[in-house]
């Protein structure tokens, strides 16, 4: 078991024939991911990476029964690409694209929330994220596969390379990952920490969870609340951005301290008070998790 992705996931890649999409789709295929086709408007009917190319997601779903879409469409068109997937009945939309206007994401997320209320369960991961990987089964994203190892630690993060750092440390401790999810560094994300923690809590293959948050917004505070009320598995929290000055956007559009909210101190406090193990030094992620788990055995 795992969450979101497994060996049966059928992936359609949007923006399939572009440079980045081609490079990463190849890597996903090499990992064994089941990419069943791709979409590039105007290139329908052709074949790319030995997979069929369609003009629309709707057609791709009809012909291939894809249930996951992986989006590499450029930022100005990415919001529409997500909506197209939702419209076509895709259950999991993973958007790698960076730089989507926040208003576009607000509109997209409202459509997704409305679909869920209407009983059409659709989940979005990203944008501006490395994607999702269930080690040993399926990779849908841009993460380097070789650092991962199948195991029982769930990892969820707002950052890309920092996720790799955490994964690598966990693997080097001899532990592995159930599923690793980058939810992205934008102010409005398709899924928040709580959405993912809920899935990990229910997943029998996940024993403990590492959550990598950062300054800005209140997703970490919400996660603290969720942990306290509804989680039984151990949760390890990392919050970056302690040394970032207020009012400056630290690369991620979401990582900004505005009007005194979203500070490192407030997030660490919320997590600690909820009983989450907060890891101060980034180099200690793997060792802290390993130590805590051997103790509990």
């Amino acid at each position: 078991m795992s969450i979101l992705l497994n060996k049966d996931s059928r992936i359609v890649v949007q923006g399939f024939t572009g440079g980045a999409a081609t490079f990463h789709s190849k890597a996903c295929l090499e990992y064994g991911s089941n990419i069943v086709g791709g979409v590039t408007p105007g290139r329908g009917g052709s074949v790319h990476l030995d997979r069929p190319v369609f003009n629309t997601v709707c057609e791709a779903v009809k012909k291939t029964s894809a249930d996951v879409s992986l989006i590499f469409v450029p930022a100005p068109f990415a919001a529409d690409a997500v909506l197209e997937s939702v419209d076509a009945g895709i259950a999991l939309v993973i958007c790698i694209t960076e730089g989507i206007p926040v208003l576009d994401m607000a509109r997209v997320k409202r459509v997704i929330l409305a679909a869920n209320r209407a009983g059409n369960p659709v989940r979005m991961i990203g944008p501006n994220c490395p994607g999702v990987i269930t080690p040993g089964q399926c990779k849908a994203g841009i993460m380097p596969a070789f650092i991962h190892k199948p195991g029982r630690i769930g990892i969820v993060s707002r950052s890309g390379t920092l996720t790799y750092e955490a994964v690598d440390q966990v693997t080097k401790q001899g532990l592995g990952q159930s599923t690793v999810i980058g939810i992205g560094g934008d102010p409005i994300a398709g899924s928040n920490f709580t959405d993912i923690l809920e899935l990990f809590e229910k997943d029998p293959a996940t024993e403990a969870v590492v959550m990598i948050g950062e300054i800005g917004g209140s997703a970490e505070e919400a996660a603290a609340c969720f942990f306290k009320e509804r989680m039984s598995k151990p949760l390890f929290g990392v919050i970056t951005g302690k040394s970032a000055p207020a009012g400056r956007r630290m690369g991620h559009a979401g990582a900004i301290i505005e009007g005194g909210s979203g500070t490192h101190a407030a997030k660490v406090k919320a997590l600690r008070e909820a009983g989450v193990t907060v890891i101060e030094n980034l180099s200690d992620i793997g060792s802290t998790v390993a130590k805590a788990l051997t103790k509990s055995l």
Binding site: G160, T161, T240, S243, A244, M250, H252, A255
Partner: peptide, 25 residues
Amino acid sequence: MVNGAGLAMGTMDTISLAGGKPANF
């Protein structure tokens, strides 16, 4: 000099933990 915004912030934090101060992000 770091790749990725999250790791860059994390690197700044680790420098601070080690008793130094970052000159930039």
